[in-house]
Structures are given as C-alpha cells and as structure tokens.
Write a protein that binds this DNA or RNA. Structure first.
Lengths: 265, 265
DNA sequence: CGCCCTTTTGATTATGGTCAAACGTTGTGG
DNA sequence: CCACAACGTTTGACCATAATCAAAAGGGCG
C-alpha cells in the first residue's frame, strides 16, 4: 500500500527516499498522535485518513484549529517550537509516517528542495490559520460553506475528489468543533445550504452542483492556499478524467513549492 | 529616537546594524502599510504604535486577524508567500522600518542568528494565530480577557508595561474587530470584567488587579507565546523597577530565540 | 435483530447584534 | 475662552443568531 506512490516533477525520487527514513504505522479513529505539551515531536506525515490539531477550551470542549489531510505534515516545520501548544488527533482510521527530527533536519540542511518544502508547508499552514480566523467572523452558513470549499480544494490537490464532489469522512460534530458551532446548528446549516442548492450530501460524499456559486457565497478565495497556477490547472483536468489516484499523495506537499525560489530577483 | 536602543545578549550590535539596512518612516493612524494581494512586501519592523493584519469579510467589515506590536515584523518570514493574503494597517500613529527583501535575505543566509530570529518570529506568529482560533471558541467575556492577557504579556516583553498595567491605545471597535464582537458588546464585556474586579480601565490604561486571577478566568496559558524561562523572569523584575524603556524594543524579537539551536540533541 | 453512533427535528433559552440616543473627551476655529 | 465638531464610550430597548435540551429517526455493524 505504501508503495503506491504517484509523484510529479523532481521531487519524485526524493519523496520516497525521505519517507523511507521514517516508519509507517496505522492509527485508529480518535487516537492521539501527538499530545499538547510534548517536548519532542517527530516529523509526521499523514498518509491516509483525516486528523486534526486541537486545543481544549472551557469545560473540556475540543476546539479544532486545523484539519490535516493526506500528504500534510501534522506539525509542519512547527517542531522547534516545543512544548507543543496543541494536540494532534486522528479523526478517522488512517496511516502516518513518523520521521525522527534529527534525521530529517540534517537531510534538509543538505537538500534545498526539502527545506523549501518544509518552509512552504509551514507558511501555507499559517495562511490557512489566518483564513480560519477571518472565517470565524462570518455567520454560520458562510462559515460552513467556506470550510467545505477549503476542504474540497485541499482534497482535490492530492487527487481525492474533484470540482464537483469529494468524500468527507467527518461527523457533523467534528465540523462543529472546527467551526465553533454546535452539532445541531451545523446540521441546520447543511439543510440551509441544501435548500439553496449549493451542496448535496450523500452519506459522506459532498456534491457541489455549482462550485463557483458556492465559492462566491462563501467568500472563498483559493489564493490563501497558495497553489501555483499550473497546479491549480491540473486539478480541473484530474477531475474530468476521474482517474483513480491512490492515497499517499505526498506529491502535493513536496512538488508545489518547487516553483518558488529562496530569494526574489 | 531610533538610536535609543536597548538590546540584550549577542544580538545587540547585530540589531542596529540590520535595522540600518532599512529606512524608518512614520505612519499615521489607519494607514495601509501593505495591501492585500501585494506581490512584493518588504521586511518591515514596527517600531512604535500598533498595527494589525486584517482581511475584509462580508459587506466590508474589517476582521483583524492579528496585532502587530513594537518590535514585531509586520509579515514575519511570511514574505515568500505572495501575493499577500491579508492587509496590514496601522491603528495608531507610529514608526516602521522597511528593509528590502533581497538585502535581508542575503544577510540572513550568512547569519545564523538572524535566520533563526526570522524563523522563530514566524513560528510564534503561527502559534498566536492558533491561540486566537481557540479563543474564537470561547464566550465573549473570556475572549476579551484572553486578548487582554496576550497583549499585556506581549507589551511587557518589550518593556511597555508590567504585570499590573499597560497602555492600550486601541478603540473598543478595534478590539471588537479582532474578537469578532460588536463594539457595543465589547463595551458590555468590559463592564462585566470590571464588575468582577478583573480589570480596570482608565482611558487607554488597562489596570489588572490580580493577574493570575484574570489569566485563570481567561484560560490564558502564556506557553503559546514561547517565551523562554529566563525571558519571562525578566519581565517581572522589569516591572518592579518601573524603569523607563524607550520604544524600539527589537530586543525581544531578536534575543529571545537565541537560546534555540537549529537541531535537537 | 439490536445496539450504538449519527443525523434530524422541534421547542425553548441565551448570547450577542442592531438601532438609537446620550454622554465625555479632545481638538479646532471663531 | 467658548462653541462646535468629531470621535469614542456608555446605556437601553429590541431583535436575531445560535446554543441547549430532548427526542425521534436513520444507518452501519456485530
């Protein structure tokens, strides 16, 4: 299963090499991957499933402060800032690869592409956090719509879904914890969005009739995900062909930043 | 005014040297320092005053997604991720130093301390963003209290205020835009916190009778600001002596990360 | 089949938003 | 020096969005 990799560009051979540094393990749903306050956090890539960053708020409510999708680092280049100020939890069953900090860091210092990838990953993560902050200032309906747009885009980036649909194995409670809404209200907002004809929900499959209409409604501007143009273009075509893409699209993580050079002209 | 610098540790001479790379200019209140979508964003340090990162949400509401205090970079090491996905706006009159990207970057590649400082700065910024996300899941009273705790701590870090009071030249509208609350409700929450004896407000001066009580109420854990222990200790003593510290405490930014080494043992 | 988890719905409450007006402060100009 | 304008704070009345409580209805899996 791990061997079914699809890469693009120069990163192809590097990725498998780098991933072989760590060891892969399965996680069940609701398993703590890293705990808040941890002093040593290995570089961890999520290969399959969905995880989240969270902090506990108030009485014991779990506030999700970010989703981790296949191909994402659980902590980006955040390591170095310990103790960890949040926890990492799997939301579904999945697979992760853990790499010791020291090994990846020595390798990064010799490998420009890798260090760029790590930096880029951290920056996109920060950018997403800012977008979520802005989103928290929106009313519930747009908030949910915006999150759906983001997840669709990020899933599409790693080949898991296209423009019109994607699979979202999260409960409405998970979404509520991420949006700062009650489960009940998330449900009502789903009804509302369905009523507007913006989304359809079939089990865990989210279907979007008219993407640009949904994105306009949500005030979603994909710029904050900092996909580069040719990358974005690929997403569309990938969708049209409906090709099977296996899990483990570390490609997106390691190839997207390859266009960016360390210093500007 | 710029020459009145107070540094600590090894960074002292470096800081003035690096700052001399750029040129200082004054900004008035509500002046756009960098605009959303900008392709080239110089490294900019705020020297005096308060600024914010913002995005426009909904009809035209300004959502503040971060405060920039004296000694902070307006964009941390975020540059590199253009176009900028937010705007930067001064909230009071102030002073900034702008440094061309190219110069600072070439210098950073030769200077370990500097590149560490930039990375550290970006990481703390990300950490603050996550704390704000968690904060957006709290009720309004705790949300305001938490923000006050953070601002107090960050001001204290650069010598602008101590444990029991600090100057906050922001309007309640500004705070509301940051917290996602209406101006009216911010005011009500101030009344409420006053009523609980947690804060007093005298003009722009915030007075905190019992800091640990306020921090407990706000669920504020300063760990997310990633101050190192000796640094945190200094804040208290600085307060007790009530010594005059001039603006321009770039010290905090460049000295705090100096304890952190690039790779762990 | 039956249990558990999730989704859905309704009724009620509460937190926070909006509107409007009064009050204080500061700064400016006659 | 006072009047006025502009801005920020404060207060009250009312409204709206979303939370809570409770219960029913699906849906997957042993």
């Amino acid at each position: 299963l791990i061997s079914k990799l699809a890469y693009s560009g120069v990163a192809e051979s590097e990725v498998s090499e780098i991933l072989s540094l760590g060891h892969c393990r399965s996680v069940r749903a609701l398993q703590e991957i890293s705990s808040p306050g941890a002093e040593i956090v290995p570089y961890t890539v999520l290969i399959e499933g969905i995880a989240c960053r969270y902090t506990i708020v108030g009485d014991g409510r779990r506030a999700l402060i970010g989703f981790i999708l296949p191909g994402d680092f659980t902590t980006a280049a955040l390591t170095g800032l310990t103790p960890l100020d949040f926890g990492i939890l799997s939301l579904t069953t999945g697979k992760i690869i853990e790499m010791p900090c020291a090994e990846l860091e020595t390798r990064a210092s010799n490998n420009l592409h890798l260090s760029q990838a790590l930096a880029w990953s951290a920056m996109v993560e920060g950018s997403i956090a800012r977008a979520w902050l802005a989103n928290s200032h929106r009313p519930a309906d747009k908030r949910l719509a915006h999150l759906l747009c983001e997840l669709r885009q990020r899933f599409a980036l790693v080949g898991m879904g296209g423009e019109h649909s994607f699979d979202l194995p999260l409960t409405q409670q998970n979404l509520g914890d991420a949006l700062g809404l009650s489960t009940v209200h998330v449900n009502r907002m789903f009804q509302y969005l369905k009523g507007l004809g913006l989304v359809q929900v079939h089990g865990h499959k989210i279907v979007i009739g008219n993407l640009s209409r949904l994105e306009h409604f949500a005030e979603f501007d994909p710029a904050y995900l900092h996909l580069n143009p040719h990358k974005t273009a690929q997403i569309g075509s990938r969708d049209r062909h409906r090709q099977h893409v296996e899990p483990l699209q570390v490609r997106a993580m390691l190839s997207a930043p390859s266009r960016r050079v360390p210093s500007r002209p």
